[in-house]
Amino acid sequence: MRILILGGTWFLGRAIAASAIEHGHQVTVFNRGRSGGDPDGAEAIRGDRESEDGLKRLAGSGPWDVVVDPSGQVPRVVLASARALVGSGRYVFVSSVSAYAGWPIDPLTETSALLESRADAGPEFGYTDPRGYPTQYGFAKAGCEQAVLDVFGPDRATILRPGVILGPWEYVGRLPWWLRRVAEGGRVLAPGDPNQLIQPVDVRDVADFATRTAEHDFGGAFNVTAPANHTTFAGFLEACRQVTGSDAEFVWVGDDQLAAVGVRQWTEIPLWRSVGAFPGTWKVSSAKAAASGLSARTIRATVADTWQWLTSGGQAVASARASELGIDPEREAEILACAGR
């Protein structure tokens, strides 16, 4: 099978390319060649998807059996890409749970309402509410989904909506931050309820499912998360402690205490959101994808492989989002002191 990946050098795109190649497919990646490196075994075509000439040159090398788009962020750019590649068999677009109108408040399935957007919207469309939801990113992803559906139709379009993705090559930096902090040892601020269920998904599991949808010609939308009972926050942090060999002591501070001192949820303490304020964060059903072959490796496997990657010199492509992550050590110590621990 001939598979085209738009991007293919960053986190998820790289993993999809590796998965498709491992499954014996002929993989082409299309990118500007400015960040990361092309995956081993893939043919590379250089070009900019925001350039009409670049898309024309790309289309001239097709068609492909499947186009996989893990990099689309702006609806009108995805619309132009889909139109240029409409002669291909299927378009698999990687969206996000942020495209749902109810995330992170409501429990979600694939039938939950999406944010209202437009297939031809530009990067300025939408807004980020001061509450933290909905986000401009979510509006954009919803518009990108519509763009793919408008061009390829429901029978030839596949929409994947992952939640939080972790694993080797992660460029956002959530898991790398936690690994480095736990590896330092000492008293570590642990947020909220240790028994809070969380469902981050391994990047390689998302990639394998994307390949599977291509191989089996699956259409429609799929939430792509780990199952609801995947792990707890305590289980996640314990995995970090075990794989780093750390002597860290986790000191659990409740949601209300953290909110009272203004800790920024999701960024200052990565992956943490108050259950009272954001009850739907980790309540995304991926039962449909699981029934179609999505599998989830253990959180310990994800943590261990990411730590091995980091300690062997792994370094993701630089991202501005990584600079937003993490609590200042002095502030962490102050919160622990105020909590009476």
Rank of each mutant, 00 (worst) to 15 (best):
F250Q: 10
A301K: 04
G192K: 06
L149D: 06
G87S: 12
P227N: 10
V151S: 00
G122E: 07
M1A: 13
I327T: 09
F222V: 06
R331K: 13
S98R: 00
F11Q: 01
F222H: 07
W178S: 06
A339R: 04
A119E: 11
M1S: 12
R204L: 11
R204Y: 10
G186L: 08
K283R: 13
S319G: 01
L310C: 07
G173Y: 13
T225Y: 08
A142W: 03
A119V: 05
F236C: 10
V97A: 11
R300L: 15
M1T: 14
G293T: 14
Y91V: 07
S319M: 05
D205Y: 05
W103H: 15
G37M: 12
R273W: 08
S319Y: 02
S286K: 03
R90M: 03
V94P: 09
V253Y: 00
W10C: 05
L197S: 14
A304Y: 04
R180Q: 13
G126C: 11
G293A: 12
A190Y: 07
G262W: 06
V243F: 04
P200S: 15
V201I: 15
G220N: 06
G37P: 00
W10F: 10
G62A: 04
T158V: 14
I335E: 01
S292T: 08
R57I: 00
D48E: 14
G340D: 04
A228T: 12
E184Q: 15
A183Y: 08
V206T: 10
T281Y: 02
E184A: 15
A113C: 12
L294T: 03
P104V: 12
S71Q: 15
L12C: 05
R76E: 12
R174Q: 14
T213I: 07
E22R: 11
Q199F: 14
V164M: 03
G185P: 05
L79P: 00
A190R: 06
P70A: 02
R204S: 13
T158P: 06
G280E: 10
